[in-house]
Design a protein around this nucleic acid. Structure first.
Lengths: 143, 143
DNA sequence: ATTAATGCAAAATCTTTGCACTTTC
DNA sequence: GAAAGTGCAAAGATTTTGCATTAAT
């Protein structure tokens, strides 16, 4: 269990405080989901995965609440959305700049540290626009 | 109209020949869609866009056929799928290695020439896997 | 003639919405 | 007790599927 950031361990009280700091009421569902999401180290998940986990932990939430919560957390900057599959969204607890391996055979993401990819040169954004994100996805499959 | 590749202009006969070379029967629908897709210069499109275009050109196709055709063309290597939006798939007629701007405000893709991005260093693929693709997407939005 | 492709409508997914009910502050 | 959040079921959107019909070779 890492000691390098304030979301590790995630005792109920601390999660609640973090939620309130983001103007999110500390409801039972949100605190429960937050513990699942941020309870251990960084992770990637889909809405469906989170929903199943919650249910199997005995946390009583609806799908709508899972989606609402994920979106609230996105807005609050607690999560980042990763687009690798047109069928579903992935959410990443690591909001710092970094890149991804996507295991096509397993529908699974894995972080790549930003230092493992050197992007030496980027085009400047078209006039009137600003860069909001640079995503590098390395798709891998079984050899 | 570019003269630099065999798909430019795309007279019906030539499209039909290209289809047959890929073991695809030259049906009226496929030839019609191929003309829309490859008729001018390189482009990006969603299934829905292609379907609307076909209908407004008077080409009688169903949605299922549009999807079937896009997938056949993907398999044949005529198209490449670009994942930037979890809601829908984009298809790119440019199958050569290159990268993309994604205009978040307009849901629109634009090619970035491969020379405009210098990827100096890539991590090696995890054991037992091979890299099937490296996608770089620069998301831009109105300033 | 054989076999592939098409079209339609129905189903499957994933996600969002509307609204009454509940909970938090 | 006011306002925000939740749950449910229904609706949306995109994509896939099943199967009878049509068209290409």
């Amino acid at each position: 269990m890492s000691a390098d950031d304030s979301t590790a361990e995630a005792p109920r009280k601390m999660m609640a405080a973090r939620l309130r700091a983001a103007n999110l009421r500390a409801t039972r569902q949100r605190v429960g989901l937050a513990e699942l999401i941020f309870g251990s180290s960084h992770r990637h998940m889909t809405a469906e995965q989170l929903y199943s986990e919650a249910r199997s932990e005995g946390l009583n939430v609806s799908q709508a609440t899972v989606y609402n919560t994920l979106h609230s957390f996105l807005e609050a900057g607690f999560l980042r959305e990763i687009v690798v599959d047109p069928r579903r969204s992935y959410f990443d607890t690591n909001t710092a700049p970094h890149h991804h391996f996507y295991y096509e055979d397993e529908n699974r993401l894995e972080d790549i540290s930003p230092s493992a990819v050197r992007l030496e040169q980027l085009p400047s954004p078209p006039a009137g626009t600003r860069i909001s994100d640079v995503d590098v996805v390395i798709r891998v499959s079984k050899r």
